[in-house]
Simulated scan of single mutants.
Amino acid sequence: MSRIAGLEPPYAPEIQAQFDRIMRGAPPLMLFRVVASNARAWEKFRAGSLLDRGPLSLREREIVIDRTCARTGCEYEWGVHVAAFAEAAHLTAEQVRATVLEGAAAPCWSPGEQALIAAVDALHVRATLSDDEFKALSAHYDDAKIFEIILLCGFYRTVSYLANGLDLPLEEKAARFPVA
């Protein structure tokens, strides 16, 4: 059980319409139900506008999200994303495992993906990128993608704070962190 109760159906029509847009007809995640229980928090959450695809490929986006959630110890959101998107993003089982258990230098990643993971790690640890980290990232990603990478790291760190801080129960069909 979450530390703050989530909304229960039937949902207000406006909330149901928002859930339907986000979930495409599937039942809403506990995260969404809990955040939507506070109108201001739900409005701010949705205003982040990072629930769309943006300029990154699905694969790039999921690497950023999975690594950010792994670094914050957020099994809830990591598991939801792995279950929903890993296959479509063409992430292998080795790569999914590496998002939790290995660093940017893991051989399963391309040079661009290694730069991406190194950037996520740097942002997690220091909330900034060194000149060398930015140079490595910009060798593979344009400015629009770099903005998106940084925004996604911040947004999913916030999502991780919510899921971890509210002690959200893991979704039934979500993946679980791999064991070392």
Rank of each mutant, 00 (worst) to 15 (best):
residue 71 R to P: 00
residue 118 A to V: 08
residue 89 A to S: 09
residue 172 E to T: 15
residue 14 E to V: 12
residue 152 L to N: 07
residue 143 D to W: 00
residue 148 E to V: 04
residue 173 K to W: 14
residue 61 R to M: 05
residue 124 H to R: 09
residue 85 F to G: 01
residue 95 Q to E: 10
residue 73 G to F: 00
residue 3 R to K: 14
residue 77 E to F: 04
residue 101 L to M: 11
residue 12 A to T: 03
residue 121 D to P: 08
residue 138 S to P: 04
residue 56 L to F: 06
residue 80 V to P: 11
residue 51 L to K: 05
residue 46 R to E: 11
residue 106 A to S: 13
residue 166 L to T: 07
residue 12 A to S: 09
residue 165 G to P: 03
residue 46 R to A: 10
residue 101 L to Q: 11
residue 3 R to Y: 07
residue 141 Y to M: 02
residue 42 W to L: 12
residue 2 S to T: 15
residue 61 R to I: 00
residue 118 A to R: 07
residue 122 A to D: 08
residue 6 G to F: 13
residue 33 R to I: 12
residue 132 D to H: 02
residue 25 G to A: 03
residue 164 N to S: 09
residue 119 A to K: 04
residue 133 E to L: 07
residue 62 E to F: 00
residue 134 F to I: 00
residue 96 V to K: 02
residue 9 P to H: 07
residue 57 S to C: 08
residue 58 L to C: 06
residue 173 K to M: 14
residue 118 A to L: 09
residue 88 A to T: 06
residue 55 P to W: 08
residue 90 H to P: 07
residue 91 L to W: 02
residue 98 A to N: 10
residue 92 T to K: 06
residue 35 V to Y: 04
residue 84 A to V: 00
residue 39 A to D: 15
residue 52 D to S: 14
residue 159 V to T: 14
residue 95 Q to C: 06
residue 13 P to V: 02
residue 97 R to P: 07
residue 77 E to Q: 10
residue 116 L to C: 06
residue 7 L to E: 13
residue 167 D to R: 15
residue 56 L to M: 13
residue 66 D to H: 00
residue 82 V to W: 01
residue 146 I to W: 01
residue 72 T to K: 07
residue 121 D to C: 06
residue 125 V to S: 08
residue 44 K to H: 14
residue 43 E to V: 15
residue 40 R to K: 13
residue 163 A to K: 10
residue 58 L to T: 10
residue 140 H to Q: 05
residue 4 I to N: 03
residue 23 M to P: 00
residue 105 A to F: 06
residue 152 L to M: 03
residue 134 F to E: 12
residue 101 L to D: 11
residue 175 A to R: 15
residue 90 H to A: 08
residue 6 G to A: 14
residue 132 D to K: 07
residue 50 L to S: 10
residue 41 A to L: 15
residue 2 S to Y: 08
residue 146 I to L: 01
residue 58 L to V: 11
residue 133 E to D: 05
residue 102 E to Q: 12
residue 146 I to A: 02
residue 79 G to D: 01
residue 113 E to R: 08
residue 59 R to A: 03
residue 92 T to H: 01
residue 22 I to F: 04
residue 21 R to F: 01
residue 120 V to I: 03
residue 125 V to Y: 05
residue 105 A to V: 10
residue 38 N to I: 15
residue 27 P to T: 05
residue 22 I to S: 02
residue 87 E to A: 14
residue 30 M to A: 11
residue 5 A to G: 14
residue 43 E to F: 12
residue 65 I to T: 02
residue 151 L to P: 00
residue 166 L to S: 11
residue 160 S to F: 05
residue 114 Q to S: 14
residue 54 G to N: 12
residue 124 H to I: 00
residue 35 V to G: 09
residue 172 E to N: 14
residue 48 G to Q: 14
residue 133 E to M: 04
residue 85 F to V: 04
residue 62 E to P: 04
residue 78 W to P: 11
residue 114 Q to G: 12
residue 152 L to Y: 05
residue 69 C to W: 00
residue 95 Q to I: 06
residue 20 D to M: 02
residue 169 P to G: 11
residue 85 F to T: 05
residue 16 Q to H: 10
residue 131 D to T: 13
residue 70 A to C: 03
residue 102 E to A: 13
residue 157 R to I: 05
residue 91 L to F: 02
residue 148 E to K: 02
residue 10 P to Q: 10
residue 157 R to D: 02
